[in-house]
């Protein structure tokens, strides 16, 4: 009867084998860094959107759906891959009187939205700066219902933030809206938009 006996070789690795192992680990670290760089360059790639008539220019995420033909905004971009709510960034301009303040503009927005959005309510309001201009920031939330009855989904809680800055007789409103659980994760999009926003 043949009996097979396993012999575990304990011979040390050769120079080539050792260096192959080291280089594989170095390569793994290098490719990991390259992969993250590729991800970042794709995720954070931006394109310029501008409205010369209103004098507003900003960098918005590339590959997002752009809409420049809305009635109540200059431009709006939405993430087509976001689920369940399409992450939204929006810039709009309102004509205001000489005595207007950012607070008054936010009050006006609150009144308009209370009738448009279900369970709309303001969460907080704080002072902010946009470059050197004083601004006002408001966080709010509302619920949104899926319009397609076939999907039979529960209502979503949408969290939003507005930043209002006055430029002469114009109030520029920068808006970010996201499903409540992902709001903080994608808030950097809004901050990036603010950093690149030019009002001229």
């Amino acid at each position: 009867m043949t009996e097979f006996v396993e012999i575990r070789e304990s011979a040390p690795l050769t120079f080539t084998q050792r260096w192959n192992t080291y280089l594989a680990i170095v390569l793994a670290v290098g490719v990991m860094v390259l992969g993250i760089t590729l991800r970042d360059s794709n995720l954070n790639a931006t394109v310029t959107l501008e409205n010369l008539e209103s004098g507003v220019r900003a960098q918005v995420p590339a590959n997002w759906l752009q809409d420049t033909r809305g009635e109540d905004y200059l431009f709006r971009v939405r993430d087509p891959n976001a689920v369940p709510f399409k992450t939204t960034l929006q810039v709009s301009v309102l004509t205001v009187g000489p005595d207007a303040t950012p607070d008054l503009v936010l009050n006006l927005l609150t009144m308009q939205r209370s009738s448009r959005f279900a369970t709309y309510h303001e969460i907080s309001r704080s002072d902010a700066m946009l470059r050197d201009d004083p601004a006002k920031r408001m966080v709010y939330a509302y619920t949104e219902f899926e319009r397609n009855p076939a999907l039979q989904s529960l209502p979503m809680v949408i969290e939003g933030v507005d930043l209002v800055v006055l430029q002469g007789t114009q109030a520029v409103v920068v808006t970010y809206r996201e499903e409540q659980s992902a709001f903080d994760d994608h808030l950097y999009r809004f901050e990036s938009l603010l950093r690149t926003l030019e009002i001229f």
Binding site: V31, G35, L38, N81
Partner: peptide, 25 residues
Amino acid sequence: FVPERWLPAAGFFGRVLGYAFTIGF
């Protein structure tokens, strides 16, 4: 890597290299 957020929108070579240097490797 969250590939579903950026790979589908990339072109063919972008998808190939993007996948190769993240999930594939």
